[in-house]
Computed example of a mutant assay.
Amino acid sequence: MQTTEKTQPKLLNLKKRLSEINDLEAAASLLYWDQATYMPPGGAAARGRQLATLQKIAHSKFTDPAMGELLEGLRPYEETLPYFSDEASLIRCTRKNYHRAVQVPAEFMGEFSEHRTETYSVWVKARATNDFAAVRPYLEKTLDLSREMAYFFPGYEHIADPLIDFADYGMKVSILRTLFSQLREELVPIVEAITAQSPTDNNCLHQRYPEEEQLDLTLKVMKQMGYDFERGRQDQTHHPFMINFSTGDVRITTRVDEDDLSQALFSSIHEMGHGLYEQGIRRDLEGTPLACGTSSGVHESQSRLWENIVGRSRGFWKFFYPQ
């Protein structure tokens, strides 16, 4: 009991700090969502600056030495807790993120953020005319900045290891190469067997379907699958994504091709899979590192489950096709 009484203020302080940082990150995410959905092209330069500012502030607050001291002060308490308890997991995950974040200067984080915003704006224009040359210099700079990011974490086996670790903690190139090799042995024969069959007649997907009707269908499908529109919404964008600002605000995007129903339908189901995962997170974890998907790999497994296993299943089409 004595340990708990001494620790309680520190734990509350940690949660308060994390909540403030989460608010800044959510504000940045909202600005990004707006850029990808409704922002006029003329706002790109200012939006890049705004996102960079928020990124630097959030990063500086998180890497404050006081945060490190607070985490060290909580270590004795953490060691008394069950490993997978909420409080032990919160302290452990925050410490992991902190030790990783302090390796990267806030100015670099701001620079990278601003570059991503500028690159997205250029890509949107280049995509419309299939002008790869226009976006190539920006992609090359992205590679340069990614390498620079990796250099902040010396001791890696492969330069991509630190970048992979950001998305899937503990993963690295050597593990993925082994995994992909095993998958190739199993998947190639399956693909060959499928492609040896006569092509499936999917003409029903490639007819003229007005945009409004397609969007109505995607909303109907997602409601049936359990996506909560009281805590989410769908809008259009150039490249679909899911984004969340809280467990009560998990948004998805899609895109429509009036001559290809599969674009909107499967994009919506895919992003809804991400959204269902986020909507399923406990609300009392809000504002902490525990209130998010455990990794990019697990997140993608959820979206692919709904898109490919459910959305492309015979049962799905038997149910929805007559409608």
Rank of each mutant, 00 (worst) to 15 (best):
F229Q: 09
E192C: 02
Q182N: 15
A101V: 05
Y120H: 12
Q234K: 10
E114R: 06
V221C: 04
E185S: 14
S60P: 00
A291R: 02
T142M: 12
S113D: 00
L219K: 14
K6W: 02
D284A: 09
R304V: 06
A106P: 04
A126P: 00
Y138Q: 08
T178C: 12
T254S: 15
G293N: 08
T3I: 14
G170Y: 09
R177E: 15
T53M: 08
S313L: 11
T294D: 11
E185Y: 13
L70Q: 06
E69D: 15
T247K: 13
P322K: 04
K141H: 10
F132T: 11
G170T: 05
L219T: 07
T3N: 11
T53V: 04
A46D: 07
R49K: 13
E271V: 04
K56H: 00
Y98H: 15
C292S: 14
Q35A: 06
S296M: 15
V122D: 01
P240H: 01
K220Q: 10
L30C: 05
F245G: 00
E213G: 01
L187H: 11
T142G: 12
A58N: 02
E300V: 10
T253F: 01
E5P: 01
Y277I: 02
L290Y: 06
A88Q: 07
N13S: 13
M109A: 11
D201M: 09
F152T: 09
Y151P: 00
A101L: 07
V191A: 15
R251L: 04
E271T: 07
S303F: 03
E286S: 13
A28E: 12
K318I: 06
G297I: 08
T200Y: 08
A126C: 10
L145M: 13
V173H: 04
P240C: 01
V104G: 04
M171S: 15
L139H: 10
Q197T: 14
R17P: 00
A134R: 14
Q279A: 11
T129F: 10
Q263L: 06
L31Y: 10
Q2A: 14
T80M: 11
Q224N: 11
Y38Q: 05
R136T: 10
K220F: 12
P322Q: 03
P322F: 02
P65F: 09
K220W: 11
R92M: 02
S113H: 00
H239Q: 07
E148W: 08
L81H: 05
L14R: 00
A58F: 01
S121I: 07
M67N: 07
L54E: 01
Y138C: 04
L139G: 11
T94E: 05
R116N: 15
L12Y: 04
A44P: 01
W33H: 13
F108S: 04
G42T: 09
I194R: 09
S29A: 15
K10H: 10
D161P: 01
V104W: 05
A88T: 06
Q103D: 02
E87W: 06
A291P: 00
M1K: 09
E300P: 08
L261D: 00
R184V: 12
F84I: 06
N308H: 12
N203C: 04
V104Q: 05
P322H: 04
S19W: 10
I57W: 03
D86K: 14
G226C: 07
R251W: 05
G43H: 03
K96G: 06
M109H: 06
N308Q: 13
M242S: 03
F266H: 07
T200N: 08
P289Y: 05
